[in-house]
Nucleic acid binder design. Structure first.
Lengths: 358, 358
DNA sequence: CTGAAAGCGCTAACAA
DNA sequence: TTGTTAGCGCTTTCAG
């Protein structure tokens, strides 16, 4: 018993190594390595002795040593603004699941939108030799983004890591990166069409902040749908602002104050929609009785709201999964390096025809 | 220019090592190591040459080699059921932030409540020599939990990692673990008291699933408050079930069907409260006009609901931060190994006195 | 101030 | 079937 204790932690808190196991089992380190790897013939007796020694010493291989020796399975890393954001969280979940399905650990890092931090993290991950570095979320300054990503791509490549862009624009330079995107504009087009088909003509839209690529796409989809249905756009009906609940509420409040006679609002995200709902409610406007409301993202919140929110489903989790799959597959054969996943309207209770509206 | 290209990735896609840098700068690897570490006198000229070589080769140290050599800063790992859960996400955020404030990477792993997976992950993290392994979430079978955690504690210790329990019971064996908890029972007591003070006497409570430690605490707080206010408990008013929106809805529906004349419902989590709200709404019951509603957790959803939810605030993010801080601090001096953070009632709009209720 | 060399723990030839 | 040994990339004495 006491002996057992001592074995677990030999003199001076030294960690047990493969050498300790070898000594205890009376074999060479190579043999231990072999039974551990299980990819080489070892006599049953020897194997048994080694296994026992391993158990007795509570031995675990040192992953770092393993990596150095060239047989490590490197981790997959994901960089996002904030784990707490529901859509980010779902991407992270997809990444984590696919990673662990492939026996890989998953490093999660947050940048809080700080470019300095992003740079520092990419460097750290380079040091780790991460198998893939997954960058998530819309980009702001396209030009700067392009050169920045190209640089990342190259330096990661040089360190043996693969750069993956999720929900971000592809690289136009020769720098290579795996990109997983969703049909952002298509989703906005579909939702706007849905609204138009229901009979709405004056649709207040809150596509997101100026310059954000995500917002660009959502606005483009809105406009394209309007054109397709032959309704002319009223610039007063598009209000730009951050993807926040607060903005949604404020925007609606302001629009209402201006007495813009919209019959529906298409929020850039479900979060924004939640704020818009609040704004409508505080003005005593019934949804969908008097005004219809649509969101984008299809996060769990959408079904927690009342009425349940009609929104655009974005396959966030699947995107995360795909990101890992592509990044890892690429090691062997050359694969598709740019996939765009589909989006679709999820009809719930927040949209009604103006005719049915009170 | 072309030369630059070749340098970045020498023949055969070999990664640049410190040796390459040394060769290019015309110095020894020891010198390169020194300028990189910056903790040793090096002539300005030499330093400059090395720095240039590093830049030209786009060199990054290999973290694994560093760890092997004994100077690595190991990552911090967190194990949770699902990143997507709001409270988990907030703990993770706290962990990530504190970890990165200390220059450490953060491994996030999900177990989906599967003990097998948990075991496998702890083993993996042991291999990584993670500085800390943070386990999150309530426990089910106390007895089994204790032996399991004791085992984890010992094997992690032997590998140089520290076990941290967040929101989980402390270890009663001699096995040591850092535990960060919150005043679960106190929060339930405070909320129930809040309800009682408002005049409610028949409070339907949905504390959580049978056997879950978290639920145990919440129920205990409820009962203690009842006793403190001299109201006798009606067993029919406590309904056990999972922390899910669905359960909240179903429970309320069932309670209503039984015509239990409660004037308030105290949900075990905000998610459950959201379901309860839906259940109340579908029965045409106004909240808080006719029935008051309270939650637990104070996740963002609480303010998205209408009416905004009165709930118990749990300092999840702070718990994550504290977990990392304690686990890492422990390396030097011996520190508090068990801290309990406070909880408090956040008053919003979902609770009203029965008198004011219609 | 700088270099040579001995590990850190493990794997994979190469021998036996 | 098993053992010996040369690295993997880096840090760090120990000498110069």
């Amino acid at each position: 018993m006491d002996e057992q204790q001592d074995l677990t932690r030999p003199r001076g808190s030294r960690r047990n190594t493969i050498r300790d196991v070898a000594a205890r089992a009376g074999v060479s380190v190579a043999t231990v390595s072999r039974v551990l790897a299980g990819n080489y013939p070892v006599s049953a007796d020897t194997r048994a002795r080694v296994v026992r020694a391993v158990t007795e010493l509570d031995y675990v291989v040192n992953a770092h040593a393993r990596s150095l020796a060239g047989v490590g399975t490197e981790a997959v890393a994901i960089l996002l603004d904030d784990i707490t954001g529901p859509s980010f969280a779902h991407i992270a979940r997809g990444v984590e699941e696919e990673a662990s399905a492939r026996e890989r650990l998953c490093l999660v890092c947050t940048t809080h939108g700080d470019p300095e931090r992003e740079l520092a993290l990419v460097d750290l991950l380079r040091q780790q030799r991460a198998a893939a570095v997954i960058l998530v979320g819309g980009a702001h300054d396209l030009a700067e983004y392009q050169v920045r990503m190209a640089r990342f791509s190259r330096s990661l490549e040089a360190a043996g890591s693969r750069l993956v862009l999720v929900g971000r624009p592809r690289l136009d330079s020769d720098a290579s990166a795996t990109v997983v995107d969703y049909d952002n504009e298509g989703g906005a087009f579909a939702m706007t069409s849905h609204l138009l088909s229901a009979g709405h003509r004056r649709i207040l839209t809150l596509p997101g902040a100026e310059g954000l690529t995500t917002a660009l796409g959502r606005l483009a989809g809105y406009r394209r749908a309007l054109r397709a249905h032959g309704v002319t756009e009223d610039p007063g009906l598009v209000m730009r602002g951050p993807y926040s609940r607060t903005f949604g509420q404020l925007a609606v409040r302001e629009a209402l104050a201006r007495d813009t006679s919209f019959t529906a609002v298409f929020a850039g995200t479900d979060m924004v929609a939640s704020g818009a709902l609040e704004g409508l409610r505080e003005a005593g406007i019934d949804v969908p009785g008097e005004v219809s409301l649509a969101g984008y993202d299809d996060i769990p919140l959408a079904t927690d709201l009342h009425p349940k929110l009609t929104t655009v489903h974005v396959p966030y989790e699947e995107m995360g999964r795909t990101a890992v799959r592509l990044a890892l597959a690429r090691r062997d054969r050359e694969l598709d390096d740019h996939v765009v996943l589909g989006t679709h309207v999820v009809v719930r209770r927040s949209v009604r025809s103006p005719g049915q509206q009170v």
